[in-house]
Each structure stands twice: as C-alpha cells, then as structure tokens.
C-alpha cells in the first residue's frame, strides 16, 4: 500500500492540488479556453475511435495468430510488438517519412486529424492483441465442439461461448489502449503538426503550458485527462460485465 501510494496516489493528488492553485475560476478558464477545449475534445474522441478500432482489429489479429496457420506467422507474432517497443519519437519519424508530404506511397496526411488517428492506431496496436492472445490460446477446443454438437452455429458459438470468455481480456486491452492514446505525445507530434484548434492534442497542450511556466494550467488539463481515464475504465468494466453475461 505504501509502495502504491508513493508510486501512484501521491503524484495523482499532487496533480489535482496543483490544478486547484488558481481556484475553480482559474481551472475553468483554462480548460474552457477554445484552444485547450478543442485539444481535449480531439484527444478523447480520437482515443475512443482508436480503442474501438483496436477492439475489433486486435481481437481479429489475435484470432488469426492463434487459430490460423500460415507462412510467416511467427514473424508477424514478433512484429506486432514493434510499435510498442519502438521509442515513440522514432515511430513518429517513421510515420512522417511514410505518410508526410514526401510520402513514397503518395499518401500525405501530415497536419491533419487523420495523422493523429494514424499515429495513435500505430502505437496502441499491440495492446488488445497481446491481452486476448493468451486467453484465446487457453480456450479449450472441446467447449466449442460441445456447443456445435448441441446445435449452435459457428456465429452463435462465437457470440455466446467464445466472446464472453474473451471479454475481460478485451476490456483490459481496450483500457490500456485508451490510456496510451490519451497520453500519447512522441509519435504524433511530428506528423500532426500541432496546429491549434485542429490537430493539437492534450499532451502537447500540457507541454506548452509548462514551457510557458503555467504549471497550474498544465495540471488542470492533466486533471481532466485523469477524470476521463477513470470514467472510461469504469465504463469498460460495466461493458465487460454485460458481455460476460450475454452468454447466459
């Protein structure tokens, strides 16, 4: 508990405390200023979008990795972790050279909101895959065979037997992926251009507040992110409980 306090609780409390130094009015003025508000909105919406994408694609990828046999499967299994292992600024550089204005693929998304989404999707890809994969591996095949012999189609078996078993893992992966997405900085800072009111995300906003010596404002934005993260984790937990009960 002491360890947990030192590591998590005290810093979190400090953030909230710093945010309150300017009083409620100061806090409100900061977060409702159009630039900050739009940065927050962009960050949260993009993070939600990326998380939804990861839930679907991550589960599908994990499924393919566990159930299908194909050439290069082992390589793919290793490569999935690369976005996670890469220093984020390097990831940003790679994305910029591929999808920037000198794109060899002819795709130029630099300085757009798509760039933010792309960068987030890139760095959060492994989370759902890596949480779902081991659970899927440990699922017993005879459970699915039992469902089949009782008359359940493949789709019904997936919906009522497999999905409820995967729900906790998918939720955990989604939470990790969302948390990473709202706090991401390095990978998108190059490609997105950080245009105020357009492609500037909350973490960039926090940094520029700090650079301007306005720590209270920076902490205010951080506190909002904190609340959002908390809400999403609770929400995901509720969804997971619902899905787990779907099988009944």
């Amino acid at each position: 508990m002491t360890w947990f306090s030192l590591l998590v609780l005290i810093p979190l409390a400090a953030v909230v405390l710093t945010a309150s130094t300017n009083g409620w009015d100061g806090f409100w003025t900061t977060v409702s200023s159009s630039q900050t508000a739009s940065a927050l909105r962009l960050t949260v919406l993009e993070a939600i979008g990326v998380t939804v994408l990861n839930v679907v694609m991550g589960t599908a990828l994990a499924w393919v990795l566990v159930r299908d046999r194909f050439w290069g499967k082992r390589v793919l299994d290793v490569v999935i972790d690369v976005p996670f292992a890469l220093p984020t600024i390097v990831a940003g550089l790679v994305l910029l050279s591929l999808y920037g204005d000198q794109s060899p693929l002819g795709i130029d998304v630099a300085n757009t909101r798509i760039a933010v989404f792309l960068a987030l999707a890139f760095v959060t890809l492994p989370f759902v895959v890596r949480t779902v994969q081991p659970v899927l591996e440990s699922l017993e095949r005879d459970v699915e065979e039992a469902a089949a012999s009782l008359g359940a189609s493949r789709a019904t078996t997936f919906r009522r037997i497999i999905l409820p078993s995967l729900a906790p893992a998918i939720t955990a992966g989604a939470a990790l992926s969302f948390a990473r997405a709202i706090s991401e900085y390095g990978s998108l800072v190059l490609l997105s251009g950080n245009l105020p009111n357009r492609t500037e995300v909350a973490s960039v906003r926090v940094l520029s507040y700090i650079e301007n010596g306005n720590e209270a404002a920076a902490a205010s934005v951080a506190a909002i992110l904190l609340v959002v993260a908390l809400l999403v984790i609770v929400l995901l937990d509720l969804i997971q409980r619902r899905v787990a009960r779907r099988g009944e």
Partner: peptide, 14 residues
C-alpha cells in the same frame, strides 16, 4: 447426437 467429453467441456461463464 449428445457428446460428453473427457474434460467436461463446461461453459465456464454459465
């Protein structure tokens, strides 16, 4: 056909 497996194959969440 009804099929019974050696390791029960129970639907664990139900």
């Amino acid at each position: 056909v009804g099929f019974v497996f050696q390791h029960y194959a129970a639907f664990k969440h139900m």
